[in-house]
Computed example of a mutant assay.
Amino acid sequence: MNRLSLSHVSANPPSLTWLAVVVVVSVGLCAGVADKKTTEPAIVRTPDSYFSRLPELGYPWRPRYIHVLAPGLSTHPLRVHYIDEGPHNATETLLLLHGTPAWSFLYRSMIPVFLRAGYRVVALDQIGFGRSDKLTDPGAYSHRLHVATVIELVRHLDLQGITAVLHDLGGPTGVSAMRRDPGRYHRLVLLNTWLPQGDALARPLDHAAYLSWRGLVTLLGRRSPVNAVFKFASDASWTDIKWGYGAPFPSYIYQAGPSHWPRMIPLTPDDPVAREMQASAAFLQGWKGPALIGYSDRERFTIPGRPLLHHVLPAACRLEVPDAGHFLQEDQGPLLADIIIRFITHGCHLQLYPILD
């Protein structure tokens, strides 16, 4: 086992109490308010005015866009937002992928560290998130859609030698994209993520955090509490949450993406996404490139998937990030970026911090 270690910061791990709080608060707010679908547009776009405070929150980069066709949906192209910073001839190219309900804003404190190292940094907003277009029907979202979006952007920019940094559901999405275009990728960084094999119902105690969250978003649908997720799963300030993380979602019709992505996680092994994840695990087992697997000390949602990642990537560097919740980029962004740079330049061989026993 290879380990990049951090000096331990003791913290009492949070219980699942906050999930109950979110349920009570959200149900109270939504009591008597049904998510009725009147005449709605199939696609909505968050007005730019909702992103006006991003520069003061540490996200100053100008938006860039491509247009993609959603597989199996329509011929109407969807606008996908990304940022592309740093020299295009840089020796290293990083692709940063988010999960739910985050967007590229999550990486705002890491991107400057990468840019100072001379790297090219590309960060994507998935359809339904950030400054990308949003489908208003939750059922219009699929694993296939998110994977196709990553593949389209990578090919559009002709990215090569990629270090993929994958978080949360960006892990399953990113590995599926890598599997279909492996020659473009050189390194892999997996952060608080997993490849769900469809065993959640068979191991309900292990998956209690995820199953609780799934139950909540199933109950509340598009009225799921996006902002509350960051309040309870990170140390983000309310200003960053309201004007940053929450900016893409001015009303419930914009929230179909965050409400449905957690429900794509397979519950049984015969689910099509479970079969895709089984194939992705087999792909990683044959992966020859460098890999880093990192979890924060307060993570709960994706911990059940850690043994599988350690099994399929036995030579990967292993990292525990202290004093951080699920959104470890928010809580320890600059430190995490520095560790990734050291991983890129030195692999697992550089002693960074005192070893954790």
Rank of each mutant, 00 (worst) to 15 (best):
P101V: 04
L124F: 00
G118C: 10
L97R: 12
R120Y: 10
T100M: 11
V122E: 09
V122P: 08
R120Q: 12
L97V: 11
I111C: 03
M110W: 02
R131S: 12
G130K: 02
G130W: 04
P112D: 14
V122K: 08
Q126D: 13
Y119R: 14
E92H: 15
G130I: 00
S109W: 00
I111V: 15
G128D: 12
G130D: 10
I111E: 00
F105W: 05
G99E: 11
L106Y: 05
H98M: 12
S109H: 14
L97I: 10
Q126C: 11
L124I: 08
L115D: 06
V122R: 09
R120G: 10
L96Y: 01
V113D: 09
I127Q: 07
L95C: 11
G130T: 06
D125T: 03
R131G: 12
F105R: 07
S109D: 15
G130Y: 01
R116S: 15
L115N: 09
L124M: 05
Q126L: 14
A117G: 05
T100I: 08
F114E: 02
A102G: 11
G130R: 03
R108Q: 12
Y119L: 11
I127V: 15
V121H: 11
T93D: 02
P101D: 13
E92R: 15
L97P: 04
L96M: 15
L94H: 01
F129W: 07
R108C: 05
R131H: 08
P112A: 13
